[in-house]
Design a protein around this nucleic acid. Sequence first.
DNA 1: CGCATAATTGATGGTTATCAAGACCAGTGG
DNA 2: CCACTGGTCTTGATAACCATCAATTATGCG
Lengths: 245, 245
Amino acid sequence: MSEREIVSCFVSKLQHFLNLTIQEQEILAVFEKSELILKRGDVLFQEGSDAEDLFVVKSGWMYSLRYTEDGKRQIMQIRHPGDLCGMHDLMLRKRSHTLVALESCVVCPFPRSALMDLARTAPRVAMLISAIGTLDQAVLFDLLQAIARSSARDRVLHLLLQLIHRLGISNVKLGSTIRLPMNQTLIGDLLGLSNVSVSKSIGLLEQEGIIRRSGGSVTVLDCEKAGNSIGYTNRYADMEITWLR
Amino acid sequence: MSEREIVSCFVSKLQHFLNLTIQEQEILAVFEKSELILKRGDVLFQEGSDAEDLFVVKSGWMYSLRYTEDGKRQIMQIRHPGDLCGMHDLMLRKRSHTLVALESCVVCPFPRSALMDLARTAPRVAMLISAIGTLDQAVLFDLLQAIARSSARDRVLHLLLQLIHRLGISNVKLGSTIRLPMNQTLIGDLLGLSNVSVSKSIGLLEQEGIIRRSGGSVTVLDCEKAGNSIGYTNRYADMEITWLR
DNA sequence: CGCATAATTGATGGTTATCAAGACCAGTGG
DNA sequence: CCACTGGTCTTGATAACCATCAATTATGCG
């Protein structure tokens, strides 16, 4: 296997931040030993069940969610190929959330203890994974801020930009058009809005000439300008990991 | 130094989850070699500046915040003694947020590279710190859900419960009364509310007999019942870290 | 005591939830 | 080919909740 060859989208995502040695790549193979195939709507694990394995998403989009007392649901995170799922429950006995396939997916389960093994055999990679977790957290704060402080229209635009930039790190030549396999109710449950508000916001953004829709895809015509207009910053753009040696 | 002796609140917080060896405790001493003293309102670092050191909070409360385009501010996190600050910017070149002292504080700066050293010399502790980060994230999601989906009253109650339970892990015999060195504008900026709404919500909760105020302190009279009524779960209550060996 | 900061209270208006009805679409079976 | 179905999206009307503004009271500190 040549050093250039990309073995998986997990390794590929990590490589985006750091050049991994062949040895490190081999160690990471453990995380994708077995595969699970899911179809749209399948539940990988349920809130309240025993927290056990973690998962690497190999293909397809997934989302994590939680239900409130009064039956409303809150979507917490959209997970893409190369992402790690179940990390929020690393220290918990029970799952704090449910994980569902948004479309056909392939995921790779592995035990939590594998992380500890990784920390011993490849500390640099283990720290990188932790650091990516903190990056996710920074991105999450951006969304929290948008939800707490901005209008329905701005929230929707914020989400679109986040998705475009997140997908950009796996697929550099993606541009500003993405496939959007989420319905408006789901988007609403992610942004703390009703499906009606989402519909109206998307309609407004299209009318303003900021986005364009066709089929299941969305384009943000000028990400730079759109981002500036709502105070959005692309967290994936300006990395510093020289301390990871 | 006997094994029982607690050298710092950082070590003490980690000990709450895991029994550290003397050797591990000695390695952790690096993180608290130097001290910085801050007074109320002092800015430890500013959003947009170069991200460098991380910090352990030794005493006092701090908070991280961010300003929006239109001048509003969003408080992101309250940090207590034993917490690590600056972790969100671990991979970033520039600070994604500002960190301010809520009252008189003592903090200990250390370079990011110290984390990498820790990963090599004490992988178990490094993983514990990462895992605490994921726990913080789960707690953050709880708050996100509250902000996105619940009323002003419920958001305020949610925050109070989170503070009580967070402080409980450092100080077991704390009970359900806490000192609250935050003004209502700050609470509002944390919960996506105006100071007026915070005032009204607190008034309502007091009137309903759910909380009681005296001086700068607040008591939640029946945390169990109050939590159930708003679908709150104490994430710090049900841990599982046997995989951390 | 006097000043600055913080909390409270009431009035008004804007944003979004909620409800309800209709349009559109893809897939299904007669 | 066409009705039927379920899901999704759109549109309009109403109402609830909270932001905002402004005035007043309370608190804390020199």
